[in-house]
């Protein structure tokens, strides 16, 4: 599918390893600075945006790179957020340790749901993923001593980062912290999807049977990727809990899973940049439009989805890229 081997064509400039490191830092850094300049009053929104972006990146790992159809990914995100909230209330204040708690609980949730979901294909797989999401949602509502029920879990007050930078009410620290986490995760994931493990997952997605025939242990690989994806979603959930100080039932809900999938497909599944841009564009758009009327927003998203499926099934990113290439080719001709 994505047969663009950058190593084949000789390129001038810095070596690939440096580029892999520098490009995400520069691009996400610039985007972050732009966000800071455009929404200086609304950094809380941008930090939220970053948490959800991590969820979309995590979803991309299983949907885009493994071809698993899931509508229950928010369960991982939400469980990690609840775990972080509880850890913080229990007295664990260090934000980095809280991130680790989120990642770890995400890992566990990812492995468990991966073990259930990736056993099957097609409809059973989809239904199992939905059922897990709904199960977690119903439990979160029930176990109100751990989750605060429908009121949400509140009173999460993390300490200072490195004991120096405290979280302020304007979310400045939170924003920079989240941005840094996003950059680090993005770089790690860039390496991961280009690794032999990442390539094998893509092979499984494109042709499950052939992957089996060349001796790949398909099921364990998919579970492993689900685990990695769980860590990323868990870090997203942790950031959400740390920055907002509240975890609500919407963190685990079906709507959150569906929305993340929409963002992913909008940008283009199977590419980390696609997931990143899909999440950013969707949420910025939502921030502006849904403030006016949430139901008109729903109609718009629906129309957008239908249009994408019909006219740009690979997502907006690849569609724009191919249009751009065609334009350049046309321009190069005399």
């Amino acid at each position: 599918m994505t047969g663009q081997h950058t190593s084949v064509e000789p390129r001038l400039g810095p070596p690939a390893a440096v580029r892999q490191l520098a490009v995400p830092v520069i691009v996400i850094g610039l985007l972050g600075a732009a966000g800071y300049l455009v929404f200086p009053e609304d950094l809380a929104f941008l930090t939220r945006l970053i948490s959800i972006t991590l969820l979309v990146l995590s979803l991309d790992l299983v949907v885009g790179y493994c071809g698993v159809a899931t509508l229950g990914h928010a369960a991982i995100f939400g469980v990690a957020a609840y775990a972080v909230g509880n850890a913080c209330i229990a007295g664990l204040a260090d934000p980095l340790l809280l991130l680790a708690v989120g990642g770890l609980s995400g890992l566990v949730m990812g492995l468990v749901s991966g073990a259930i979901v990736t056993r099957f294909h097609g409809l059973p797989q989809l239904v199992l993923s939905i059922a897990i999401g709904q199960l977690v949602g119903a439990l979160s509502n029930k176990l109100s001593s751990l989750t605060g029920g429908s009121d949400g879990l509140s009173g999460i007050t993390p300490g200072r980062i490195f004991g120096v930078f405290g979280f302020d009410m304007f979310s400045r620290t939170g924003y920079l912290f989240s941005l840094a986490v996003l950059i680090v995760v993005f770089i790690v994931l860039t390496r991961l999807v280009a690794s032999p493990f990442g390539l094998l997952c893509r092979g499984i997605r494109d042709n499950n049977l052939r992957a089996r025939m060349i001796g790949a242990a398909v099921y364990p690989r998919l579970i492993a990727m689900y685990g990695v994806s769980g860590v990323v979603a868990g870090i997203g959930g942790a950031l959400m809990a740390i920055n907002t100080g509240v975890v609500g039932l919407d963190s685990v809900g079906f709507e959150r899973s569906a929305e993340a999938l929409v963002m992913l497909v909008l940008g283009g599944a199977g590419s980390l940049w696609g997931a990143l841009f899909g999440a950013i564009v969707f949420q910025l758009f939502e921030h502006v439009v849904s403030a006016a009327n949430p139901y008109h927003w729903l109609t718009l998203v629906g129309l957008l989805l239908v249009a994408i499926v019909l006219f740009a099934p690979q997502g907006l990113g690849p569609a724009v890229a191919s249009r751009w290439r065609r334009l350049r080719r046309a321009g190069a001709r005399p």
Partner: peptide, 29 residues
Amino acid sequence: RRIYRGAGELTQLLLTIGVTFVIIGLANY
């Protein structure tokens, strides 16, 4: 008609979620 049989689950999901969203929005309107 475009998504009968051949199309993958993801395509079907997205298209039908899109249709649902539009119907919900219009019903509310």
